[in-house]
């Protein structure tokens, strides 16, 4: 039943009472943690959308000077992409219960994600060496702000990744819980990839 037809029902009528009595207590057939994560992703999407709107609004002023995009950004994008793909692969390994592959996958994901973050820091360094500080003009400010925030979100993801990995190493996690953790992390990784691609595109076209 869709949300709208649900709120159109008349809960006091006998017919509706019969229907409602069957209700099992949850609106979605999702684990709670997964729903929680999805709601969080909506909030984060809102956050980056607002930044993007602010950015493109500012861009329309005539004094806009855009920033050079170091080639390294492309490489970093590749790292994040691969990291996210490997996470999907790890997820299917988890589903098949192949623990060795899961461990390998998690290691790779972590290494790639850290490499991405280090790559981003090097990009900052390169830009700063060229004299593009955050305060030089609004385009620079936005660049540092957006990349910084994206990096922070990835760091947050790495905390969750770290917890999962530790548990896998210790072998102290049930199959079902492990699958849920890996699924959630993988979703988060893909989400951050999409956010990054959107932001990168925005930075590129300007």
């Amino acid at each position: 039943m869709s949300f709208f037809s649900e709120i159109a029902s008349k809960p006091w009528t006998d017919e509706q009472i019969k229907v409602d009595d069957q209700f099992k207590g949850h609106t979605f057939t999702l684990p709670k943690a997964m729903l929680g994560l999805r709601v969080l992703l909506v909030v984060v999407t809102m956050f980056f959308t607002l930044l993007a709107i602010a950015y493109s609004g500012r861009m329309t002023f005539e004094d806009w000077q855009s920033l050079p995009e170091p080639g390294l950004l492309w490489f970093n994008t590749g790292l994040l992409l691969v990291s996210s793909v490997v996470f999907r692969w790890t997820k299917s390994a988890t589903q098949q219960g192949r623990n060795g592959k899961v461990k390998l996958g998690l290691f790779l994901v972590g290494a790639l994600a850290f490499a991405f973050l280090i790559g981003q820091l090097i990009v900052w360094q390169q830009l700063a060496d060229l004299g593009h500080f955050a305060s030089a003009n609004p385009a620079n400010g936005f660049f540092y702000l957006i990349t910084g925030l994206h990096g922070l979100h990835l760091l947050g993801g790495l905390v969750a990744w770290g917890r999962t990995t530790l548990r896998v190493m210790r072998g102290k996690i049930g199959q079902e819980k492990l699958l849920l953790s890996v699924e959630m992390c993988a979703l988060y990784w893909s989400f951050l990839l999409v956010v990054w691609l959107a932001m990168f595109l925005l930075l590129l076209v300007t």
């Binding site: 709120i7 809960p11 409602d20 209700f23 207590g25 949850h26 609106t27 979605f28 709670k32």
Partner: peptide, 13 residues
């Protein structure tokens, strides 16, 4: 609210 209601507690209840 979405996932932990009692049985029978539809949104419109």
């Amino acid at each position: 609210i979405l996932q932990a209601r009692a049985r029978g507690m539809t949104l419109m209840r």
